[in-house]
Design a protein around this nucleic acid. Structure first.
Length: 572
RNA sequence: GCGGCUGUAGCUCAGCGGAUUAGAGCAUCGGUCUACGGAACCGAGGGUCGGGGGUUCGAAUCCCUCCAGCCGCACCA
């Protein structure tokens, strides 16, 4: 089906083209009519004509009769009110469409999304939350749109600190450490190693030698390294399961994977004449970047000690994603503080012609998670907060709330539901605010069942499903007609028909919060409708119509939450 | 110093490809309904959109400037 917005836009575009080819109708939703087209104003200005004249000319050619009534308002706005016959057609088409009107893309792209990227032998903490949640939402949305998504979990599994970690592993005893790591006590392990490293010069020297052995490919060292990596990955996987994230073990392509390509990166940059030695390090100086002193800022590819920096592996990964994986779009779901580094990597990749103009490559930046004091979110003790602890706390709260409500569930079913609610609370809070902005982590607010929260949306869905349970018999979207005589019915219907444009703008701008805003709006329209319009006690065609609206609403919420990575339980 | 981000109702946030009266949630206050799940609905109060200047018929939205705060700025990723 062609969505309501697309249909309207198409008709208007033809008319605008007749006046000036390519003129943008600037079609938006409106509180005046159902939609408004403000493009007349800009067009009139360009043409140096009175806006109302231009509006008249456009309406003279526009074929809108079967779709909407139009009114020229104010200086020259086009206020559009959709015809009820058109709404009826659209809703009936939507009712039989499993995609609810969201068209798949006509030319699928291979989209490579780099997200999550925790560090081996380090706890997953709030700092990993946003990348994981936002990245997974974008991956799901892209897949739903029909793209070929390749998820890349660029874990930190290499680097000089592995010398110290391996030595500590040996000190602690391999068997015991395996157990420690797998239960997720990674922070303790890392900190112990760090403390020894800073205090014990003998340990420091062993660590240094161990790094050399690791980089030199010493088999026993590599084996020990694998122990650390495998234990960590197993743990990460548990966290992903707990978070209901789609990342698979096979999506893990860590820094170590690019090891053998680093030499080639340096060589090729050198052959291209981009490499400059500066203070003993091999660097590329992409234009436009400065340091504190106003001097050119290098991207250090090879450090003065001959080791490779993360810039080298980032470049290798980028090149691999273009040349080997044939990515059409490269997305990096990485925190805003790394913006400059990534810009430099991208700039160098462009300079080296590893990144063609045709490949979209951008950072999906996000802000920090803040505590109640509006500073970086930390525990009382000033330490980073473990992700699992956060989840567990949310699950406990959900449990308590379910008890207060007097849920009829118990055992595994109750636990499962509490987990679904907890995930929804945390994910929705993270996704519903504009990505780039910092947000304040407030579990009480995000898990509340009222307000703009994940649980509220789940509840709206559960209420809808309960209607169909009460119906007592299977219900199929039949041949209901949508007369939409009650205002609340029409408002709900209009909201439902906006799913496609909302989904599309959310994905194309890589801003999941737009979809969140939309879903919350639909849920509110539904509760108003539900309050004003009896469903089960209505009769005949009206009852069918209202049931059909309920069905569409439930499916819209489920689909929308689903592509964000949030469950929509049948009952709560 | 350079670059980036932020400043919208008491609190948390949308809106920022300019456009007709600045929105939501929470909180507060007042209503509704023997209630298809009240975890509801309806309504009210509350904002010089950080300050100032500019562009425009029209600016929360674009440009400049100032103030406040956060982040990044060569060998950790």
């Amino acid at each position: 089906m062609t969505s309501t917005y697309e249909t309207l836009l198409g008709r208007l575009q033809v008319a605008f083209d007749a006046v000036e080819s390519g003129a943008d109708p600037a079609l938006r939703t409106s509180d005046r009519g159902d939609y408004q087209a403000n493009g007349v104003m800009a067009l009139a200005k360009r043409l140096g004509r009175p806006p109302r004249d231009v509006a008249d000319e456009i309406l003279g050619v526009a074929q809108l009769k079967d779709v909407a009534d139009v009114e020229i308002a104010g200086p020259g706005f086009l206020n559009l009110t959709l015809r009820s016959t058109f709404l009826d057609e659209q809703l009936r088409a939507m009712a039989t469409d499993s995609r609810l009107g969201v068209a798949g893309v006509t030319s699928p792209k291979r989209v490579i999304i780099d997200y999550s990227a925790p560090n081996v032998a380090k706890e997953m903490h709030v700092g990993n939350l946003r990348s994981t949640v936002i990245g997974d939402a974008l991956a799901r949305m892209s897949r739903f749109a029909g793209h070929d998504v390749v998820a890349r979990n660029h874990v930190g599994d290499w680097g000089t600190n592995f010398g110290m970690l391996i030595e500590h592993l040996l000190d602690r005893g391999e068997d015991r450490v395996g157990a420690t790591l797998s239960i997720g006590d990674l922070d303790v392990f890392y900190k112990e190693a760090r403390v020894k490293f800073d205090a014990d010069s003998g340990f420091k020297e062993r660590s240094r030698l161990r790094v050399v052995a690791l980089q030199g490919g010493d088999p026993e060292t590599l084996r020990l390294w694998h122990v650390l990596v495998d234990e960590s990955l197993a743990y990460f996987n548990e966290v992903y399961t707990k978070l209901d994230v789609t990342l698979k073990p096979s999506d893990v392509v860590g820094e170590s994977y690019y090891n053998e390509m680093l030499e080639g990166v340096v060589q090729d940059l050198d052959e291209l004449g981009l490499l400059v030695e500066s203070e003993g390090a091999l660097c590329v100086f992409p234009p436009g970047f400065q340091n504190r002193e106003g001097e050119p800022l290098p991207l250090i590819v090879r450090k003065s000690d001959d080791g490779f920096g993360y810039a080298a592996s980032d470049l290798a990964a980028l090149r691999d994603r273009v040349a080997t994986l044939h990515g059409d779009e490269l997305l990096y779901v990485v925190g805003a503080p790394q913006a400059q580094h990534l810009e430099m990597v991208f700039a160098v990749a462009r300079l080296a012609h590893w990144l063609p103009e045709t490949v979209r490559c951008e950072q999906v930046a996000f802000g920090n998670v803040l505590g109640p004091d509006h500073k970086m979110f930390k525990s009382r003790a000033g330490e980073t907060v473990k992700l699992v602890r956060l989840l567990d706390e949310a699950i406990e709260r959900a449990y308590v709330i379910l008890d207060e409500r007097g849920t009829d569930l118990d055992g595994d079913a109750k636990l499962h539901l509490a987990e679904q609610i907890a995930r929804a609370a945390i994910k929705y809070a993270d996704l519903s605010t504009e990505r780039q902005h910092d947000y304040v982590f407030d579990l009480d607010r995000m898990i509340a069942f009222e307000g703009d929260t994940g649980p509220y949306l789940q509840y709206a869905h559960a209420r809808l499903r309960s209607i169909f349970r009460r119906l007592g018999e299977p219900w199929q979207p039949g041949d209901a007609h949508f007369a939409l005589e009650a205002k609340a019915e029409r408002e709900l219907a209009l909201g439902l028909l906006r799913l496609p444009e909302s989904f599309n703008s959310s994905l194309s701008s890589l801003q999941p919060h737009r979809l969140c805003t939309y879903l919350f709006d639909v849920a509110q329209r539904f509760t108003s409708f539900y309050d004003a319009c009896p469903v089960l006690s209505a009769e005949g065609a009206l009852r069918e119509e209202r049931l059909a609206l309920c069905d569409l609403t439930a499916r819209t919420l489920k689909l929308g939450l689903g592509v964000l990575g949030i469950d929509a339980p049948e009952r709560m």
